[in-house]
C-alpha cells in the first residue's frame, strides 16, 4: 500500500484503496486512535496535537521577536549616537500614562492566563467568556490611553514631519526619537488591535462551549500571542518613557 493505510485493516482487503474509497476508510483510521472529535487525523493523540500547535506558535513568535528586534536595534543605534538628545526628548512623554498602561497590560495578561486556566479546568462557558472579555476590555483601555497620548503629541507638534517643532537643545535627535516612538508604539498598538480581533473570535468559540480540559488549543495559542505583546510593552515603557525621568 503506497499510503500505508492497509495496516489498519485486520482482515483481507476487499476493495483496492482507490482515491474514491479513502473516505470510507477514514472512520476506521479514527476508531484506531479512539480520539477526541477535535483530533485531526494526522496527529497520533491530543497531546501531540497541542504540542505541535504550541511549537508552531512559538516559531511565529520568534519571527515577531525579530520583527520588533529590528526597531529595538534602530533605537539602540540612534540612542547610542544621541544619548542626551534622547533623554531630553523622552522627557516630553507622560510617565503617568505610560505607567498606567503598563499596569493595564499586566492586568490583561493575568486575566488572559486565567482565561486559559478556565478552559483547562473545564470551567463553565460564562466563566471562560468572562475572563476573555475582561482581557479585551483591558486591551481596549490600553488603546484608549494610547489615543489620548497620540492626540497630545499631535497637539504639541511632536509628530515628525514638516510641522515638528522642538524648543530644546537637540531638535534633530528629538525628531528621530519621536519617529521611533511612533513606529514602535504604533506597531505595538497594531498588534493589540489584531489581538482584540483574535480574542473576539475566541470569546465566541468559548461561548459556544467549544473548550474544555481535553481541547483548549485556540485559547492557549491566542494567550501566547497576547502575552508576547505584553512583553514588548514591558521593554518599550522604560526605554521610551523613563530614560530622562530623573531630570524632572
Amino acid at each position: 500500500m503506497p499510503d500505508g493505510r492497509a495496516e489498519h485493516f485486520p482482515g483481507p482487503i476487499h476493495q483496492p484503496p482507490l482515491a474514491a474509497n479513502v473516505d470510507a476508510i477514514q472512520p476506521g483510521v479514527h476508531a484506531e486512535h479512539a480520539g477526541h472529535p477535535k483530533l485531526q487525523h494526522h496527529f497520533d493523540d491530543m497531546e501531540q496535537q497541542v504540542e505541535a500547535s504550541t511549537l508552531g506558535m512559538w516559531v511565529f513568535l520568534v519571527t515577531e521577536i525579530m520583527f520588533f528586534g529590528g526597531l529595538f536595534m534602530a533605537y539602540l543605534v540612534y540612542r547610542w549616537a544621541n544619548p542626551t538628545g534622547f533623554q531630553e526628548a523622552s522627557n516630553h512623554l507622560n510617565v503617568t500614562w505610560g505607567a498606567v498602561n503598563t499596569a493595564v497590560l499586566i492586568c490583561s495578561s493575568l486575566t488572559m492566563a486565567l482565561a486559559v486556566r478556565a478552559a483547562q479546568t473545564s470551567a463553565p462557558a460564562r466563566t471562560q467568556v468572562g475572563w476573555i472579555v475582561a482581557t479585551m476590555v483591558l486591551g481596549a483601555a490600553f488603546l484608549g490611553v494610547k489615543v489620548i497620548e497620540y492626540a497630545d503629541k499631535f497637539a504639541h507638534h511632536l509628530v515628525p514631519g514638516p510641522n515638528f517643532v522642538w524648543e530644546g537643545h537637540y531638535p534633530a535627535a528629538a525628531e528621530i526619537f519621536y519617529s521611533l516612538y511612533f513606529c514602535m508604539t504604533g506597531l505595538h498598538a497594531l498588534h493589540m488591535i489584531i489581538g482584540l480581533g483574535i480574542m473576539a473570535v475566541i470569546a465566541i468559540m468559548a461561548w459556544r462551549g467549544q473548550f474544555d480540559s481535553h481541547y483548549y488549543t485556540p485559547v492557549e495559542v491566542s494567550g501566547l500571542y497576547w502575552h508576547f505583546v505584553d512583553i514588548v510593552w514591558i521593554f518599550l515603557f522604560p526605554l521610551l518613557y523613563l530614560i530622562g525621568y530623573h531630570y524632572h
Partner: peptide, 17 residues
C-alpha cells in the same frame, strides 16, 4: 525555539553595535 529568538536578537545587537 523560544530561547533561539532571544539568542538571535543578541547576535543582532552585539554585531551591529
Amino acid at each position: 525555539v523560544a530561547g533561539s529568538g532571544f539568542f538571535w536578537l543578541l547576535i543582532l545587537f552585539s554585531i551591529t553595535m
